[in-house]
Design a binder for these strands. Sequence first.
DNA 1: CTGTTAGCGCATTCAA
DNA 2: TTGAATGCGCTAACAG
Lengths: 345, 345
Amino acid sequence: MRATINDIARRAGVSKTTVSFAFNNPSKISEETFTRIMEIARELGYVPDPVARTLAMKQTGSIGLLLPQSIQEVFLNPYIAEVMRGIGFVCDQEGLSLSVLSPLKGVLTQTIRNAAVDGIITLGIGPGMSVLELFHQRGLPFVTIDGGNAEGIVNVGIDEQACSERLMESIIAHGHRDIAIFMLRNVTLSDNGDHFSLTNDNRLTGFNRALQRHGLSIGSHTGIRVYHTEATLRSGRETAREVLAEKRRPTAILCLADIQAVGVYEECKIEGLSIPRDISVIGFDDIPLAPFLSPPLATVHQPGYHKGEAAAKLLTSMINKQSAASVVLETEMMIRESLGPALRP
Amino acid sequence: MRATINDIARRAGVSKTTVSFAFNNPSKISEETFTRIMEIARELGYVPDPVARTLAMKQTGSIGLLLPQSIQEVFLNPYIAEVMRGIGFVCDQEGLSLSVLSPLKGVLTQTIRNAAVDGIITLGIGPGMSVLELFHQRGLPFVTIDGGNAEGIVNVGIDEQACSERLMESIIAHGHRDIAIFMLRNVTLSDNGDHFSLTNDNRLTGFNRALQRHGLSIGSHTGIRVYHTEATLRSGRETAREVLAEKRRPTAILCLADIQAVGVYEECKIEGLSIPRDISVIGFDDIPLAPFLSPPLATVHQPGYHKGEAAAKLLTSMINKQSAASVVLETEMMIRESLGPALRP
DNA sequence: CTGTTAGCGCATTCAA
DNA sequence: TTGAATGCGCTAACAG
């Protein structure tokens, strides 16, 4: 049985208060009693219980990162690591620890209920009403990353529509009219299915804007088709296999997560297709390894690290009862070799 | 001010116990009172405080992952994400959350003291005496990953010496006698500097065994040199730049972290060196993207995911007061194209 | 099935 | 500088 503050106090012949001071505010007690207390503490192996401490002080010193899927799935995407790095930077700076929360057995509500954190950052999901209400009930400050814009919610994101439009525009400009688009499966998490990601819708809107301008449109009868995939290498590969086997093979594959492109590359190699001569591949995110693939991957640079950093900073200021407002970060088209002119049959 | 269990009890005209049961063990109360309580709870926006709950139940429902450096640095290495995925799998399975702990402002002791977790997994560090003592004081079960073997410590690792020996053996077999080895900087964390990583020493031992068998040895006067680097792309690049500029350029570069190899590739490209014709590059870890680099990276496959999984499983059984013993996982040489015969001048 | 009564371990205000 | 008392919010024996 571990020693408690009472044991120390008794042994030292002082009150609990004094012991507490010894650990948290030594300047308030005499040096003599301080050393005596610490002596006894070491002897008895006493160390203040973090949980009791947290209860009394009413703050945990840690923030939560709420993921849209299980850790196991989410970390298949290197982009996530970038976001975490950004959050981690602030945590380090502020002396916070980071608690990774994933939907326990699919029950997001329980996860949030039980999270012993001072605030939460959600990644890739716009919280639905029930979750929002929970945050509110618990008085938990939160900020969303890529959660879309809704009033009263602090979000860190990019202009999904604009950059998607620009992206599609440059694909079209390269002459592509047969395009396979690997969309990310929408996230729906909650018990009542009211969590979602607006990202997809926004990107689709952007794509459509560019397409329409050129008299093109998405559809099974046109050359421009949408596939619902996951943000993993494997999903990229599998979908590519499917796509490459079609009678009307696209001249470009657009992956809404870079990591998928790696799978696409692989499948193209197997099929003996040269990128970008035979087919173009375009990504989204600009993961750290994108420039080092062969050929270097054309993609949209998304500031994952800065998103994490911005979100964490906003959250800490909210925790400190300061104001915070949504942030829209810049993206950049990274035109690299994997995007080339459409081959003219 | 948030509603507490007392408010609910009063409003419902029942005792705290009953309210508590309503949330944790509904079968113990009548359905009637249950619904009434829940009704009132919703009305008042009551949700049990996780911290108070934790204090009373004496378990937090979360485990800690203690990193050797800041999150920001550590997640530069994709291998880490693999380990996390493995841990995350078990967490999901067990309904645990994962708390990422990094040395707060370099003070590891504080981090551990304040961690509200049921157990800890350390990554890449063999805890020194002071930390060990802390774990012990707090009664915190822990398991180390790549922490080296010490008695009384549960560790998950690989046979560093054996696989390093095999690795060096096959490099030598390819005719290489001029080799640059990018060792990972040793980790020393604690206040009194008694944390360390045995990994490096073990690998070095393995290398030396292979080298000696061929009458070779590491040293500044020989062709085989050691560089102290970090497990990042950037460090790989910078060290490569340095190495490639030397008068006696090595015929092979061995990176003890795959991610470094990406930087080496880049630098070789700049120098107009072809891999493996002009120079061989060998890695360690087998990160998911290793086979997709160009050329595919020869490396040692290290089961990051399984390490994480094994460690988390061991930890959970320790938390449940069950026995647990160290595990040594298998590695595999992945001879890919980036390792070729040494060029004969 | 429900209420009473203790804790859980610590921080902190207010006196002394 | 130190101590007594109180509160933090909840769980769980135990009793009824």
